[in-house]
Every structure is written in structure tokens, then in C-alpha cells.
């Protein structure tokens, strides 16, 4: 995909803004233009949180999302508000444990054990990085190597090992393609 719109949606504190920033960094390194916007509630944890990217090969006219090509759901909270924004055939990646109820529709749903995989690695907070790995594994949004490089550059050293393992697990889930619809 050259020009596309993607949302990371979940609950405050799940690292959605970090995922969006890392993906944006990777896309910019690949020469794309990116506009990033965010919305969250006035609480430090919990509440609807979302991070949106508008990605283009050239100049971005309108910087906010209007029709999503990719939706990543780490919690049930953003499902209702985000589903109407999907473009027909959009890619939807959802955490099977925390965002398991996804309405039927004209989209390519990948219901995956994102948070379960992070828990198995020892820390549920790495769910956001598992999700990035899935995006790399599916191979439609961003190159694997660029994403891995920005994770290496952008994550605090003491969490790097956990994040790299979370990323690798996500890649594995993505390459398997998930159970599909």
C-alpha cells in the first residue's frame, strides 16, 4: 500500500501512541509522508484511546483519517466508533482476548492472540509491539527490517529484548496470516 490510513485503537495505557509513532518513523524512513493525530480521554489509564496515521507517497492534503485501510484493535472500546470508518475490504487486526467481538462486514479480519502472546513473553504491555510485528508479517504496510530498526532505536534499552521478542512473535502470527475471517 502506498497511500493509506491506519488506526491503532484501544484503551488508554496500552501503548497505542508508541505503536503509531514507531510505525510513522519507519514509514518516514521508507520515504513516505506521514501525518499523525491522536485522541485520548483525560485519564492516565483506561478510556478510549486512538492514534491515527495518514500515509502518502507525496504531500498530504487532509491530515485526519476519513476512510481506514487498516484498523488495529487492542480493546473492545474503539470497535463501535471505528467500524463505520472502514473502507470496503479493509484489513482489521484484533486482539482475540480483549477485542473479540468484531461485527461482520466487508473487511479482512485477523483475530489473533496478541495480548496472550505478550503475556506468554512475560508482559502484557508488549501487546502493542506484537501488533506491529503482525503488520510487518502481513507485509502490506511496512518493511520488516525498517520496523525492527525503529524499535531498536526507539525503545528504552532495558525493554529492548522483550520488545524484539514481542515483535518476532507478531511477525510469526502475521506470516501465518491468522485464522482469517
Amino acid at each position: 500500500m502506498e497511500n493509506f490510513e491506519i488506526r491503532f485503537g484501544g484503551s488508554g495505557g496500552q501503548g497505542l501512541q508508541l505503536s503509531a509513532r514507531l510505525l510513522a518513523d519507519a514509514l518516514i524512513r521508507e520515504g513516505r509522508k506521514v501525518a499523525r493525530s491522536q485522541s485520548y480521554e483525560p485519564t492516565s489509564r483506561g478510556g478510549l484511546s486512538r492514534a491515527d496515521l495518514v500515509v502518502a507517497a507525496k504531500r498530504i492534503d487532509y491530515p485526519l483519517i476519513t476512510a481506514l485501510d487498516v484498523l488495529v484493535l487492542l480493546d473492545q472500546l474503539p470497535v463501535a466508533v471505528s467500524m463505520p470508518l472502514l473502507r470496503p475490504g479493509a484489513l482489521v487486526i484484533a486482539d482475540a482476548r480483549r477485542a473479540g467481538e468484531i461485527p461482520e462486514g466487508d473487511h479482512d479480519l485477523h483475530l489473533l492472540p496478541l495480548s496472550e502472546s505478550a503475556l506468554a513473553l512475560g508482559n502484557e504491555r508488549a501487546t502493542n509491539i506484537v501488533a506491529l510485528g503482525v503488520l510487518a508479517g502481513l507485509g502490506e504496510v511496512c518493511e520488516h527490517d525498517t520496523l525492527e530498526t525503529v524499535i531498536r532505536d526507539g525503545v528504552p534499552p532495558r525493554f529492548l529484548d522483550l520488545n524484539l521478542r514481542a515483535f518476532a512473535k507478531g511477525v510469526e502470527l502475521g506470516e501465518a496470516g491468522g485464522p482469517g475471517r
Binding site: 510513522a24 518516514i28 509522508k33 506521514v34 499523525r36 493525530s37 491530515p63 485526519l64
Partner: peptide, 9 residues
């Protein structure tokens, strides 16, 4: 506010 909180290069 949109332009103020938007992130661009």
C-alpha cells in the same frame, strides 16, 4: 487544536 496537536515532518 487539530493543527496544534498534529504531528508532521
Amino acid at each position: 487544536e487539530v493543527i496544534g496537536h498534529l504531528v508532521e515532518t
